[in-house]
Protein backbone atom coordinates (compact mmCIF):
# COMPACT_ATOMS: atom_id res chain seq x y z
CA UNK A 1 0.00 0.00 0.00
CA UNK A 2 1.56 3.26 -1.08
CA UNK A 3 2.10 6.28 0.98
CA UNK A 4 2.55 4.83 4.40
CA UNK A 5 5.25 3.37 6.52
CA UNK A 6 8.46 4.68 7.80
CA UNK A 7 9.43 8.19 7.07
CA UNK A 8 12.85 8.52 8.44
CA UNK A 9 14.91 10.94 6.51
CA UNK A 10 13.20 13.92 5.07
CA UNK A 11 9.55 14.70 5.33
CA UNK A 12 9.78 16.97 8.29
CA UNK A 13 9.90 20.68 8.68
CA UNK A 14 11.44 22.96 6.17
CA UNK A 15 11.66 20.78 3.12
CA UNK A 16 9.07 21.44 0.46
CA UNK A 17 9.05 17.71 -0.19
CA UNK A 18 8.12 14.97 2.16
CA UNK A 19 8.67 11.27 1.88
CA UNK A 20 5.01 10.51 1.44
CA UNK A 21 4.80 12.89 -1.44
CA UNK A 22 7.85 11.41 -3.06
CA UNK A 23 6.46 7.92 -2.62
CA UNK A 24 3.20 8.91 -4.24
CA UNK A 25 5.08 10.51 -7.06
CA UNK A 26 7.07 7.35 -7.55
CA UNK A 27 3.94 5.25 -7.56
CA UNK A 28 2.38 7.50 -10.15
CA UNK A 29 5.50 7.34 -12.29
CA UNK A 30 5.74 3.60 -11.97
CA UNK A 31 2.13 3.22 -12.96
CA UNK A 32 2.74 5.17 -16.11
CA UNK A 33 6.00 3.40 -16.86
CA UNK A 34 7.94 6.62 -16.69
CA UNK A 35 11.60 5.96 -16.11
CA UNK A 36 12.92 9.41 -15.44
CA UNK A 37 11.37 12.50 -13.97
CA UNK A 38 12.43 15.87 -12.73
CA UNK A 39 10.49 18.55 -10.92
CA UNK A 40 11.17 21.65 -8.91
CA UNK A 41 9.20 22.87 -5.95
CA UNK A 42 10.08 25.57 -3.47
CA UNK A 43 13.60 25.78 -4.75
CA UNK A 44 14.19 22.08 -4.41
CA UNK A 45 14.53 20.11 -7.52
CA UNK A 46 13.89 16.46 -7.35
CA UNK A 47 14.89 13.91 -9.90
CA UNK A 48 13.65 10.38 -9.91
CA UNK A 49 15.23 7.78 -12.07
CA UNK A 50 14.15 4.22 -12.32
CA UNK A 51 17.13 1.96 -12.30
CA UNK A 52 17.36 -0.62 -14.98
CA UNK A 53 16.99 -3.86 -13.09
CA UNK A 54 20.45 -5.13 -13.78
CA UNK A 55 22.54 -2.48 -15.42
CA UNK A 56 22.32 -0.19 -12.45
CA UNK A 57 22.86 -2.62 -9.68
CA UNK A 58 25.93 -0.72 -8.62
CA UNK A 59 24.94 2.26 -6.57
CA UNK A 60 28.19 4.11 -6.30
CA UNK A 61 27.15 7.54 -7.39
CA UNK A 62 29.51 9.98 -5.86
CA UNK A 63 27.88 12.65 -3.84
CA UNK A 64 29.29 15.54 -5.72
CA UNK A 65 28.76 18.83 -4.10
CA UNK A 66 26.87 21.25 -6.22
CA UNK A 67 25.79 24.75 -5.61
CA UNK A 68 22.12 25.38 -5.51
CA UNK A 69 19.97 26.12 -7.27
CA UNK A 70 21.90 24.83 -10.20
CA UNK A 71 21.10 21.31 -11.08
CA UNK A 72 23.97 19.04 -11.87
CA UNK A 73 22.94 15.75 -13.26
CA UNK A 74 24.32 12.88 -11.31
CA UNK A 75 27.27 11.03 -12.72
CA UNK A 76 26.38 8.63 -15.48
CA UNK A 77 24.79 5.62 -13.98
CA UNK A 78 27.23 2.81 -13.53
CA UNK A 79 28.03 2.35 -17.15
CA UNK A 80 31.14 0.61 -16.06
CA UNK A 81 29.28 -2.35 -14.68
CA UNK A 82 30.17 -5.39 -16.73
CA UNK A 83 27.44 -6.26 -19.12
CA UNK A 84 27.85 -9.96 -18.71
CA UNK A 85 24.46 -10.40 -17.27
CA UNK A 86 22.79 -13.75 -17.61
CA UNK A 87 19.52 -13.88 -19.44
CA UNK A 88 16.43 -14.39 -17.35
CA UNK A 89 16.43 -17.93 -16.03
CA UNK A 90 13.71 -20.35 -17.01
CA UNK A 91 10.71 -19.57 -14.89
CA UNK A 92 10.31 -23.03 -13.45
CA UNK A 93 13.73 -23.30 -11.94
CA UNK A 94 14.94 -21.44 -8.94
CA UNK A 95 16.26 -18.22 -10.35
CA UNK A 96 19.99 -17.82 -10.27
CA UNK A 97 19.62 -14.32 -8.95
CA UNK A 98 19.87 -14.10 -5.22
CA UNK A 99 16.60 -14.08 -3.34
CA UNK A 100 17.65 -10.69 -2.07
CA UNK A 101 16.65 -9.32 -5.42
CA UNK A 102 13.33 -11.10 -5.32
CA UNK A 103 10.32 -9.98 -3.39
CA UNK A 104 9.09 -12.85 -1.25
CA UNK A 105 5.46 -13.08 -0.22
CA UNK A 106 4.99 -14.86 3.10
CA UNK A 107 2.00 -16.24 4.90
CA UNK A 108 0.70 -14.09 7.77
CA UNK A 109 -1.20 -17.01 9.32
CA UNK A 110 -1.11 -20.75 9.81
CA UNK A 111 -3.66 -22.28 7.51
CA UNK A 112 -4.46 -23.89 4.20
CA UNK A 113 -3.20 -22.43 0.95
CA UNK A 114 -5.68 -22.03 -1.88
CA UNK A 115 -4.40 -21.03 -5.29
CA UNK A 116 -7.82 -20.11 -6.63
CA UNK A 117 -10.94 -18.36 -5.28
CA UNK A 118 -12.99 -21.54 -5.62
CA UNK A 119 -12.13 -25.16 -6.44
CA UNK A 120 -13.47 -24.83 -9.97
CA UNK A 121 -11.86 -21.48 -10.74
CA UNK A 122 -8.48 -21.01 -12.41
CA UNK A 123 -5.59 -20.05 -10.13
CA UNK A 124 -5.16 -16.41 -9.19
CA UNK A 125 -1.66 -16.48 -10.69
CA UNK A 126 0.78 -18.78 -12.45
CA UNK A 127 4.55 -18.73 -12.70
CA UNK A 128 5.50 -16.24 -15.38
CA UNK A 129 2.50 -13.98 -14.77
CA UNK A 130 3.06 -10.28 -14.35
CA UNK A 131 1.30 -8.96 -11.28
CA UNK A 132 0.47 -5.51 -9.97
CA UNK A 133 0.64 -4.26 -6.43
CA UNK A 134 -2.58 -5.28 -4.70
CA UNK A 135 -3.40 -8.08 -7.08
CA UNK A 136 -4.72 -11.19 -5.28
CA UNK A 137 -2.27 -14.08 -5.30
CA UNK A 138 -3.91 -16.72 -3.14
CA UNK A 139 -6.15 -17.33 -0.14
CA UNK A 140 -5.00 -18.69 3.19
CA UNK A 141 -7.76 -20.14 5.30
CA UNK A 142 -7.73 -20.77 9.00
CA UNK A 143 -10.93 -21.75 10.78
CA UNK A 144 -13.10 -20.30 8.05
CA UNK A 145 -11.22 -17.04 8.19
CA UNK A 146 -10.20 -16.25 4.68
CA UNK A 147 -7.15 -14.17 4.09
CA UNK A 148 -6.70 -13.07 0.53
CA UNK A 149 -3.03 -12.40 0.05
CA UNK A 150 -2.29 -9.50 -2.24
CA UNK A 151 0.93 -8.80 -4.03
CA UNK A 152 3.11 -6.22 -2.35
CA UNK A 153 5.21 -5.85 -5.44
CA UNK A 154 4.74 -5.32 -9.13
CA UNK A 155 6.65 -7.80 -11.19
CA UNK A 156 6.84 -11.32 -12.44
CA UNK A 157 5.92 -14.40 -10.45
CA UNK A 158 9.07 -16.50 -10.67
CA UNK A 159 8.20 -19.17 -8.19
CA UNK A 160 5.22 -20.55 -6.30
CA UNK A 161 6.44 -22.51 -3.30
CA UNK A 162 3.26 -24.24 -2.22
CA UNK A 163 0.55 -26.30 -3.82
CA UNK A 164 -3.17 -25.87 -3.73
CA UNK A 165 -4.66 -27.27 -0.52
CA UNK A 166 -1.31 -27.54 1.23
CA UNK A 167 -1.01 -26.46 4.87
CA UNK A 168 1.29 -23.50 5.46
CA UNK A 169 3.02 -22.14 8.51
CA UNK A 170 3.27 -18.59 9.72
CA UNK A 171 5.95 -16.75 7.77
CA UNK A 172 6.32 -19.51 5.18
CA UNK A 173 7.33 -18.22 1.78
CA UNK A 174 4.52 -18.55 -0.74
CA UNK A 175 5.68 -16.64 -3.81
CA UNK A 176 8.80 -15.09 -5.22
CA UNK A 177 8.30 -12.05 -7.40
CA UNK A 178 10.95 -10.44 -9.51
CA UNK A 179 10.12 -6.77 -9.19
CA UNK A 180 9.70 -5.00 -12.48
CA UNK A 181 12.42 -2.68 -11.34
CA UNK A 182 14.63 -3.04 -8.42
CA UNK A 183 16.18 0.25 -7.82
CA UNK A 184 15.13 3.79 -7.91
CA UNK A 185 17.35 6.69 -7.28
CA UNK A 186 16.14 10.01 -6.04
CA UNK A 187 18.24 13.08 -6.10
CA UNK A 188 17.13 16.32 -4.66
CA UNK A 189 19.01 19.53 -4.86
CA UNK A 190 18.20 21.62 -1.87
CA UNK A 191 18.23 25.34 -2.03
CA UNK A 192 18.64 25.71 1.66
CA UNK A 193 22.09 26.68 2.80
CA UNK A 194 24.31 23.95 3.99
CA UNK A 195 22.79 21.15 2.00
CA UNK A 196 23.67 20.80 -1.55
CA UNK A 197 22.84 17.42 -2.83
CA UNK A 198 20.82 14.68 -1.39
CA UNK A 199 21.03 11.33 -2.91
CA UNK A 200 19.03 8.39 -1.79
CA UNK A 201 17.82 5.09 -2.95
CA UNK A 202 14.37 3.69 -2.78
CA UNK A 203 15.03 0.06 -2.57
CA UNK A 204 11.65 -1.42 -1.86
CA UNK A 205 9.69 1.16 -3.66
CA UNK A 206 7.17 -1.15 -5.18
CA UNK A 207 4.29 -1.40 -2.82
CA UNK A 208 6.19 -0.58 0.28
CA UNK A 209 7.72 2.26 2.14
CA UNK A 210 11.14 3.33 1.10
CA UNK A 211 13.81 1.87 3.26
CA UNK A 212 16.18 4.75 3.02
CA UNK A 213 15.85 8.30 1.96
CA UNK A 214 18.73 10.24 3.25
Amino acid sequence: MPGKGSSRGSGSSGSPWNVKEICELIDALAERQISEFEMEKGGVRIRIKRGDAVAESNSSHSTASVLPPAWTPPPPAADSVPASVPAAPPADTLPTESTEDLHLIKSPIVGTFYSSPSPSAPPFVNVGDLVEVGQPLCIIEAMKLMNEIESEAAGEIVRIYVENGQPVEYGQTLFAIRPSYRKLTVWAVLASPGVSLVEGEFRKVVGGAPEAVD
Binding site: P108, I109, L145, M146, N147, E148, E152
Partner: peptide, 16 residues
Protein backbone atom coordinates in the same frame (compact mmCIF):
# COMPACT_ATOMS: atom_id res chain seq x y z
CA UNK B 1 -23.36 -19.27 8.31
CA UNK B 2 -20.43 -16.97 8.90
CA UNK B 3 -17.73 -15.94 6.48
CA UNK B 4 -14.82 -14.01 7.91
CA UNK B 5 -12.36 -12.23 5.68
CA UNK B 6 -9.34 -10.25 6.73
CA UNK B 7 -7.09 -7.75 5.13
CA UNK B 8 -3.59 -8.07 6.52
CA UNK B 9 0.10 -7.76 5.99
CA UNK B 10 2.52 -10.24 7.47
CA UNK B 11 2.44 -8.71 10.94
CA UNK B 12 -0.40 -6.28 10.74
CA UNK B 13 -4.10 -6.86 10.66
CA UNK B 14 -5.82 -3.98 8.91
CA UNK B 15 -9.39 -5.11 9.27
CA UNK B 16 -11.54 -8.15 9.74
Amino acid sequence: GILTEISAELDRLHAA
